[in-house]
């Protein structure tokens, strides 16, 4: 089973990642599916993370937390946040099959980031809702 997105849809998503997140100072952002595939990613050009490994771990991490949510009777946690000394990671679920992962430093406040992530999520949702994930 496989699925795809058109060039135009990918352009739209990458545009959103760039303008709403990278341009406000986010270091690195990627959109993945729950299998760990990378749909789109953008960074500020200063750092090169191993995005494929990050995607695999992020999907696993989010999956594990969702399974915990079920056990404690919470439908799910739709967002997650890991705080570091300098770098932070923010996860946001988009419909049922996708995750937006944002890596940002302490230069950006969490409140502002959340606001921008929410805006980006709404725009990306509109694109993803048009496709069929098997």
């Amino acid at each position: 089973m496989s699925y795809t997105l058109g060039q135009k849809q990918l352009d739209t998503i990458e545009g959103v990642l760039q303008q709403d997140l990278i341009d406000i100072g986010v270091r690195c952002v990627f959109l993945i599916d729950m299998a760990g595939n990378i749909i789109a990613n953008r960074d500020n050009g200063k750092i090169k993370h191993d995005v494929y490994s990050l995607a695999a771990l992020a999907a696993g991490n989010f999956g594990a937390v969702s399974a915990m949510a079920k056990i404690i009777g919470e439908g799910e946690f739709s967002l997650l946040f890991h705080k570091g000394k300098k770098e932070n990671i923010h996860f946001n679920k988009i419909i049922s099959d996708f995750l937006l992962i944002t890596i940002f430093s302490n230069d950006i406040s969490l409140g502002f980031l959340r606001l921008k992530v929410n805006e980006a999520v709404e725009k990306i949702k509109q694109v993803l809702e048009t496709i069929n994930v098997p």
Binding site: Y3, L5, G6, Q7, L10, I38
Partner: peptide
């Protein structure tokens, strides 16, 4: 659930 990326000409399996 392979993802086919026509833009990067890439398939993730």
């Amino acid at each position: 659930m392979a993802f086919i990326n026509p833009k990067k000409k890439e398939v993730q399996v």
